[in-house]
Every structure is written in C-alpha cells, then in structure tokens.
Simulated scan of single mutants.
Amino acid sequence: MPITKITAATKTIEDAVAQAKQNLEGLVKAQQEQLEKAQAQLLKSYDDLAALSKLNVDAVVQSGTIVAKGAEEAGKQVAAFTQASLEKNVAAGKALMGIKSVRELIDFQNAFVKQSFDALVAETTKLQELSVKVTSDAIAPLSARVNATVNTFAKPIAA
C-alpha cells in the first residue's frame, strides 16, 4: 500500500505541475496577445498622427502660397498706382507751364489735390478689399485643418 500511496501522491503532484504549466502557458499567451494588440493600436495611432501632421503642414503651405500670391498682386497694384500717379504728376507739371494767372493756378491746384486724394482713397479701398480677400482665403485651409484636428482628437480611442 505505501507504494500505491506514493504513486497516487506522485500522480497528484504531476497533475498539479501539468495544470500549473498549462495555466502559465495560457497566461503568457494572453499577455503576448494583449501586447501585440497594444502595439498594433500604438502603430495605428502613430500612423494616424503622422498623416494628420502631413495634412496640417500641407494646409500651412497652401495658406502661405495664397498669402504670397496676394502679396504679389498687392505689389502689382501699388506699382501700377505709383506709375499712374507719376504720369499724372508729369502731366500736371506740364499743365503748370501753361498757367497764366494766380486764379488759374489756385483752381488747377485745387482740382489736382482733389483728384489725387480721390485716387488715393480709391486705391486704398482696393488694397483693403484685396487684403481682406487674401486673409479670408489664407485662413480657410488652416481653419479646415483646425476643425479636422479637433474632431480627430475628440473621437474616443477604439478599444
């Protein structure tokens, strides 16, 4: 009988060791699966963040391009206005040569100042309208990216 008890005890210990080994293997496998799942989620999040960053940079470049084109257009408008003003000043200088009285000079001067001021106001208005348009156009891609980024970060992370 003692051998039977030893055999039974050995069998019980072997069964317990086998069960412990099986439980440990299951635990290791479960941890490995969770680690792989977390790693995949992390890589996906990184890829999403990289794509988001690229789109944000693209929006900044697009906005910068719009500002540069607007500045170029404003520069052309200022150059054209300066050229037109210079031509008007040269014509006014020639007209001054033909003035024969003080009254004609005063009338000419008043008309010239009024015309010059009206042209300046009109040109300033055109430049202001261009500035507002360029600013609105340049902000549009940035605003769209801010909204998209806020929406992206507002979404709960899928488990």
Rank of each mutant, 00 (worst) to 15 (best):
E104T: 03
V113C: 03
K94E: 13
A119I: 02
Q115P: 00
V113F: 07
F108R: 00
S116W: 01
S101L: 07
F108H: 09
D107V: 05
I99W: 04
I106N: 06
A111M: 07
E104Y: 04
M97K: 13
L120T: 13
A111F: 04
L120F: 13
A119C: 01
D107W: 01
D118R: 01
M97E: 14
Q115W: 01
M97N: 10
G98A: 14
A111Q: 13
L120P: 01
D107S: 13
G93T: 06
L96I: 07
A91R: 08
G98L: 08
I106Q: 11
K114A: 12
D118F: 04
M97L: 15
F112S: 14
F108A: 09
A111S: 12
V102F: 14
K100S: 11
L105T: 10
I106G: 03
F112G: 10
I106M: 11
Q109E: 11
L96P: 00
M97R: 12
K94F: 09
K94G: 03
V113M: 09
L120C: 05
K114M: 06
S101R: 02
I99V: 15
A111W: 03
A92E: 11
D107E: 15
Q109M: 03
F112K: 09
L120M: 10
K100E: 10
A92C: 01
F117S: 14
I99K: 09
K114R: 10
R103A: 14
V102M: 10
D107K: 06
F117G: 03
D107Q: 12
S116D: 05
G93I: 02
L96H: 02
L105N: 04
A92G: 10
A95W: 03
A92N: 14
A92W: 09
I106C: 05
M97Y: 02
R103C: 00
D107N: 14
G98P: 00
Q115N: 13
A119F: 00
K100Y: 00
L105K: 03
A92I: 01
V102C: 02
A91P: 02
A119L: 03
L96N: 08
N110Y: 07
D107Y: 04
K94D: 13
A91L: 06
K94I: 08
G93R: 04
L105C: 06
Q115D: 15
L120A: 15
A92H: 10
E104G: 09
V102G: 00
D118Y: 01
G98F: 07
F112I: 02
G98I: 02
F108G: 13
L105D: 05
I99Y: 06
V102S: 07
D118C: 05
K114E: 11
Q109W: 04
K114W: 04
A91D: 13
A119M: 02
K94H: 09
F112R: 10
Q109Y: 07
K100R: 12
D107I: 00
Q109P: 02
A91V: 02
K114V: 08
V113T: 14
L105W: 06
K100C: 01
K94V: 09
A119S: 12
I106D: 11
S116P: 01
G98T: 12
